[in-house]
C-alpha cells in the first residue's frame, strides 16, 4: 500500500516538473519569434521623442505619421502593385500547374518519376539566375518594368511548388469519388470540376495563399525587373538606402501586417503545405 503511494507521489512530481519545463521552453521559443514582430509594430507607430528617449522602452504616445510618410513616398502604389502581381501569379501558376498536379496525382505514366524528380529539383533552383537575362528579353517584348512581366517570372518560381501542392491535395481526394462520378454519367473533365475540385477547394484556397505569400515576399527578381512599377519589397529595398530609421520601421510594419493575417487565417494549412513542398 505504502509502496503504491510512494510511486504515485514521485510520478506526480515528475509529471508537473516535466510540464513546467515544456511550458518554459515553449514560452522562450514563442517570445523569441513574436517579440520582434510586436516591437516593430510598436516602434513603427511610436512618437519620435519617446523612441529617442533611452529610458522609455515601451512608448505611451503613438502616431501614424511614419506610415503616412511612407505612403506619400509611394508605398500605397507599391502595395497595389504587389497585390496585382501576386494575384496574376496565382492565376497563371494554377492555370498551368493544376493540370500537371492532377496528372501526377491521378495517372501512372512512363517517365512520371523522373518528371516529378525534375520538378522537385527545380523548386530548389536559385530563381534569381533568370532575372537578369529575362530583363534583356523583356526589353525586346515590351515587358520590362511591367507588372505582367514580374508576374510571369514569379509564375516560373511558384510553378514547382503549385504542382507539388496541388498533386498532394488531389491525391488526398479518393479516386473512388471521381470514379463514382464517371460511373454515374460524368466524363473525366466533368468529374474533375463537379466532384474533385469542390472537395479539393479548401486545400487549393490555402495553396493560393501560399502562392500569394511567395510572390508577395520575392524581392530580387522584382527589383531587377522593375524601375518605376515596383512591388512593395522592391520599393522598400530601393528606398532604404537613404531613408530615416522611421521610414524603415514603417516599411517593416507595412510588410509584416499581411503576413500576420495570412498565418492566422490559414496557419494550419500553411504548416501542412510547407511539409509537402519541402520534403
Amino acid at each position: 500500500m505504502s509502496r503504491e503511494v510512494l510511486v504515485k507521489k514521485s510520478d506526480i512530481v515528475k509529471y508537473y516538473l516535466r510540464k513546467i519545463i515544456i511550458a518554459g521552453l515553449v514560452a522562450i521559443a514563442v517570445t523569441w519569434v513574436a517579440l520582434p514582430f510586436v516591437m516593430t509594430i510598436i516602434y513603427a507607430l511610436s512618437d519620435p521623442d519617446q523612441y529617442y528617449d533611452p529610458h522609455i522602452v515601451i512608448p505611451t504616445r503613438y502616431t501614424l505619421e511614419h506610415i503616412h510618410k511612407l505612403i506619400v513616398l509611394g508605398a500605397w502604389n507599391a502595395t497595389i502593385n504587389s497585390v496585382i502581381v501576386a494575384v496574376l501569379t496565382i492565376l497563371f501558376s494554377f492555370a498551368i500547374g493544376l493540370p500537371a498536379g492532377y496528372a501526377f496525382a491521378r495517372y501512372a505514366f512512363k517517365g512520371k518519376d523522373s518528371l516529378k524528380l525534375f520538378i522537385v529539383a527545380l523548386r530548389m533552383f536559385p530563381m534569381m539566375v533568370i532575372a537578369v537575362p529575362l530583363l534583356v528579353l523583356y526589353f525586346k517584348l515590351g515587358l520590362a518594368d511591367t507588372l505582367l512581366g514580374i508576374a510571369l517570372a514569379h509564375t516560373a518560381m511558384a510553378l514547382p511548388f503549385v504542382i507539388l501542392i496541388t498533386s498532394g491535395i488531389i491525391a488526398g481526394v479518393p479516386v473512388e469519388y471521381e470514379e463514382a462520378g464517371l460511373v454515374f454519367g460524368l466524363n473525366r473533365i466533368g468529374a474533375f470540376f463537379r466532384i474533385t475540385l469542390p472537395l479539393a477547394l479548401p486545400g487549393l484556397a490555402a495553396a493560393a495563399i501560399f502562392t500569394f505569400i511567395m510572390s508577395w515576399n520575392e524581392v530580387f527578381i522584382a527589383a531587377v525587373l522593375s524601375f518605376q512599377n515596383r512591388t512593395l519589397p522592391a520599393f522598400i529595398l530601393n528606398l532604404i538606402g537613404g531613408a530615416t530609421d522611421f521610414i524603415k520601421f514603417a516599411g517593416a510594419f507595412i510588410m509584416v501586417i499581411p503576413a500576420l493575417v495570412f498565418v492566422f487565417v490559414a496557419g494550419k494549412y500553411l504548416v501542412r503545405m510547407w511539409g509537402i513542398t519541402l520534403k
Partner: peptide
C-alpha cells in the same frame, strides 16, 4: 503558428 510566422514575411522585412 507563432513559431512559423517568420516564414511568411520577406527577407527584406
Amino acid at each position: 503558428y507563432t513559431v512559423i510566422l517568420p516564414l511568411t514575411i520577406s527577407d527584406v522585412a
